[in-house]
Nucleic acid binder design. Structure first.
Lengths: 204, 204
DNA sequence: CCATAAGCGGACCGACGGTCGCATTAGCGT
DNA sequence: ACGCTAATGCGACCGTCGGTCCGCTTATGG
């Protein structure tokens, strides 16, 4: 009697051999995702309880848990598209973000892009932040690995996994919100400081 | 009818002109703090609910809220002593942590010290982390200012407040727990990576 | 049109942080 | 020694949250 696996990432793609998703279920999924985005925008990450989202979507809360497993599953599904687009860019896109540029330049471009993604989906990232530390890095694995590889290429003497995590943590959504909203720092300033951290790393 | 201000930091020092703390209240405060430390050690930050701590201390939960205001107030009071000792060291102690050494060396020493403090009080820092972003930086203000000053001295070209926050965030307790407990990284490795970030900053 | 399984809903649960008003008692002046 | 009073203790209570469960509804394929 195991319930069907929740959508999680790649939710829209039908699994081979699995029965097609029912039409009403698909419609509800869409309404839930839209409602979640709306609630996030209107009430912020802290006001985005499942009950609120369910009410906004006009569905029972059970429906949300059925489709997305748990709270973080819902938000994972929401960030999925943006994250995949960003992954495509830094894995296959043009330099300096994509392959072809020196690792330092790629790292700088990566973090500028990451900061932009977080800025454009700040409340969503904040909502995710709460559960980010349950599973290894909860969806951040691909990003982590990418940074690790670039760091290893740039500075073989460093411990790449640790340095990668330090860098990624520096642009924590919580800090971003604080700097942007409370302090009122310009995005370019944050990117500049981040660049200083990167370009100073010992080159190979 | 404003209730007396909660203890917060510097709780033990009697405020001039204020009535002395009652003996039973002082005893209870001590028992609560000890119980909190015990619960933190035994059940971790996530298992350290106020109810649990109250039960362990043998007091009503109302007593805890009366003395410490709220959850984060209790943990603030707990970390207070360690934080103040650390502050004394980097403000008045011997170099390179204290004054007298070049800013880069002081920064490196500061973050090594900060990592040590967090390591020795990991669960407590994790418990605090939940509410760290309510007030400006919730007890981190002094640390932030110190890092800011050193960064400004080291690299006048940089935006010191932003860079300071980026550096401080890199050693987030959540990341520290992940690296230490899940990945099993050595403390020295983390310190090394952190040093690489600092010494690479553009010198004056 | 029917059978069946997928989907839906919302009452329900346990845990949590925090409040409140009443009972208790320490400390002080006498 | 005694009583007065303000400080303190206490735990039942509250609203909210994430998550579960199971009976009802409905889409869909034959």
């Amino acid at each position: 009697m195991t319930p069907p696996p929740p959508d999680g990432a790649f939710g829209e793609l039908p699994v081979i051999g699995a029965p097609r998703e029912r039409a009403d279920a698909a419609a509800n999924r869409k309404r839930i995702l839209e409602a979640a985005l709306r609630v996030l925008a209107e009430h912020g990450a802290d006001g985005a309880s499942i009950d609120t989202i369910a009410q906004e979507a006009g569905v029972g809360k059970g429906t949300i848990f059925r489709r997305f497993g748990d709270r973080s599953g819902l938000f994972q599904a929401l960030i999925d598209e943006d994250l995949r687009r960003f992954q495509d860019e830094f894995m296959f896109g043009p330099p300096p973000l994509g392959p072809g540029a020196p690792p330092a330049d790629r790292l700088v471009a990566f973090f500028e892009g990451l900061i932009d993604v977080q800025e454009s989906r700040l409340e969503l990232m904040l909502a995710l932040e709460r559960d980010r530390w349950k599973s290894p890095m909860g969806g951040y694995v691909t990003l982590s690995l990418h940074v690790e590889r670039l760091v290893a290429e740039l500075s073989p003497a460093l411990d790449a996994p640790v340095t990668a995590q330090l860098l990624l943590n520096a642009v924590n959504p919580l800090l971003l919100r604080y700097l942007r909203r409370e302090v009122g720092v310009d995005l370019a300033t944050i990117k500049d400081s981040m660049r200083s951290l990167i370009v100073g790393l010992p080159a190979a």
